[in-house]
Design a protein around this nucleic acid. Structure first.
Lengths: 344, 344
DNA sequence: ACGTTCTCAGAAAACCTTTTCAGGGAGAGG
DNA sequence: CCTCTCCCTGAAAAGGTTTTCTGAGAACGT
């Protein structure tokens, strides 16, 4: 009653076996043709035609099981909402795209345990490599990284001791440059709104700020420093309110564009003109900085560039696991817009 | 000279076989324990211990090859840089995270061919499903979707005919609401800065604008409509310049927050006060809208919510491929801030 | 005590490719 | 004519897991 169907009819998703049978060759030959390995014109023709006719598509899982390559990389960042990381995602995406590699996203919430778990999870081999943008690399990270199952490229401060490809910004230098710029346009009471100081960015930008003061011959005044609860807009606004309740600076450097946007709001509320009364400088040169009014002078720390380099480093290491470890830095660049009072 | 090492020494990455041997059970039993399938306490104990001791981690490729599940979903969007999609990424990420599913990202550049290729690529089975945020679904999409190899959930206008889970916004209604709001606060010459009209958003927001005029008893005046080259800041600025060279509206509705930011810049350049001279309303309630000055009144089209629902729909369909197709809509919500002159 | 049901474990197949290995045939060189 | 090379092909193994199927033993009911 229920005759078994001929195989050609029952065929569901075509596999390489289907193609091989149809082309009257072995699966080995089929595989070779499909992977562009030299074969005789005759079989090439036959296999191509067969594959075309059944609409064959290789199965990703089987392929990576055998070839030990997934064709995927991952990017782990603290916060999807932060425009800096969004920029990086775009940049990495672009590199991945031209390399024919897919991109996975992880958002760690800047939780070190989460980051560690991520590195450990590489042992599942679900990606060929990982780009890790971390705010704070611990000893545990270093330990875990040194035994990681797949290549990792870190975006952040290079860790001493461990040998892992790293791409860094010179945010300390960038912050110092910003202070010098403010001094050059005539400001002398230069305040600093920082983010949490236990982060890499927080501590190095703080040092840069102090460097800058020193190199301008300005006295350090801790009253002029305020630390926000986070590198975000609202904390920036609150920090500025506290700062203004205490002192009257003629310039404010912010550790980050988001903080700067918050500070800008607070200044407006306090009826202070930017840049007339207070000059303002942010950091990161995110998309936001061109959109505020007045447009924000900011230090471009090369997020886009850094991410691009990180992606390229990762791909190159995947190709050549043995190549020597690289640490590359991207130079900061001051982008002068209206908010620092140097224009118009 | 070169004795073969005992297997326990040569062992590289431990596989399930390693664990099974160590626990003195079959790989089948090991697999069962590892997947939480009921077994005797004795073997459970032994396998768990063995796995622990060698630090066993299952191989993702092998697992998905056999189980036909990748534990991955993908999100395809027109543009990583657009804050609307960034919001969606965050939202989907969150759902994926709690479901223990990994998230892949595709950026299509709003290119229909790219989107089609993406749907076709599902046949590689590298993900269990796809969320597609598309600006413009064509016939070809419908055709491709109906034969797609994995579940797809569309964020956008529901397509007639095809049966695919869809989550939509009521942007037409949202735009109309915005017009009524502007009329309610006393504006009568209400202009409209739109994005490209061949997109779903463009055409429906335009209709909503016209609906709004009609329901307020305002006459339609095509001089008051300007179409920007893209849903972005600069095109918005240019559109506003053209508009202002021609007419003098007392309110402007923008099809999008990015456009609104651009328009805001143009208004400032033209020395027009917002909201005093011109009231301004955007759409999407992106993070930007709270940051401008004055803060932007905008229509929240529920991007976060829509993406969340899309992700949940996708996961539920993956679990239960047979369940009936759902089309769900999210209600728009007017978020009144300073720019429309209804506050203060 | 015997048959029935139930629980659990192991062997083996299946998932779909890539890659190694060996062999066959053809061409070249002696 | 023989041997050596070279090119191409096919068979089969390997990659690591899940799942089905079968069987053994225990528990249970009559």
């Amino acid at each position: 009653m229920h005759e078994p169907l001929a195989t050609s009819e029952v065929e569901g998703v075509p596999t390489i076996t289907t193609v091989a049978r149809l082309a009257n060759v072995s699966v080995a030959s089929a595989s070779r043709v499909l992977n562009g390995i030299r074969t005789s014109p005759a079989t090439l023709e036959r296999v191509t035609a067969a594959a075309e006719s059944v609409g064959y598509v290789p199965n990703a899982a089987a392929r990576s099981l055998r070839s030990r390559r997934t064709g995927q990389i991952a990017f782990a960042m603290p916060d999807v909402g932060n425009p800096v990381y969004t920029t990086m995602v775009g940049s990495i995406q672009e590199v991945a795209r031209v390399a024919g590699v897919r991109l996975l996203l992880h958002s760690t919430g800047a939780d070190p345990d989460d980051e560690l778990a991520l590195i450990r999870d590489l042992r599942h081999r679900y990606v060929d490599g990982l780009i890790l943008a971390s705010l704070h690399l611990t000893e545990a990270h270093a330990a875990q990284l040194s035994v990681s199952a797949a290549p990792v490229v870190v975006i952040g401060r290079p860790t001493v001791g461990t040998s892992v490809d790293t791409v860094r910004a010179y945010s300390r230098r960038g912050a110092a440059d910003a202070v010098r710029h403010l001094h050059a346009v005539g400001r002398t009471r230069i305040a600093f709104v920082n983010g949490p100081t236990h982060t890499v960015s927080g501590s190095s930008r703080r040092r840069g700020y102090l460097d800058g003061l020193r190199s301008c011959g300005l006295e350090r005044d801790d009253e002029l420093i305020e630390v926000a609860a986070d590198f975000m807009v609202e904390p920036g606004r609150r920090a500025a309110e506290l700062l203004l309740a205490r002192v009257r600076p003629d310039a404010i450097l912010c550790a980050n564009d988001l903080l700067a946007v918050g500070v800008l709001g607070a200044l407006r509320d306090a009826q202070l003109d930017v840049p007339g009364d207070v000059a303002l400088v942010g950091m990161d040169n995110t998309d936001l900085s061109g959109l505020t009014w007045p447009a924000l002078t900011t230090v471009d720390l090369g997020s886009f560039e850094r991410a691009r380099i990180a992606a390229e480093l990762l791909l190159s290491r995947i190709d050549e696991p043995g190549r020597e470890v690289q640490v590359v830095g991207v130079e900061p660049r001051l982008v002068v817009r209206a908010s620092s009072g140097a224009i118009g």
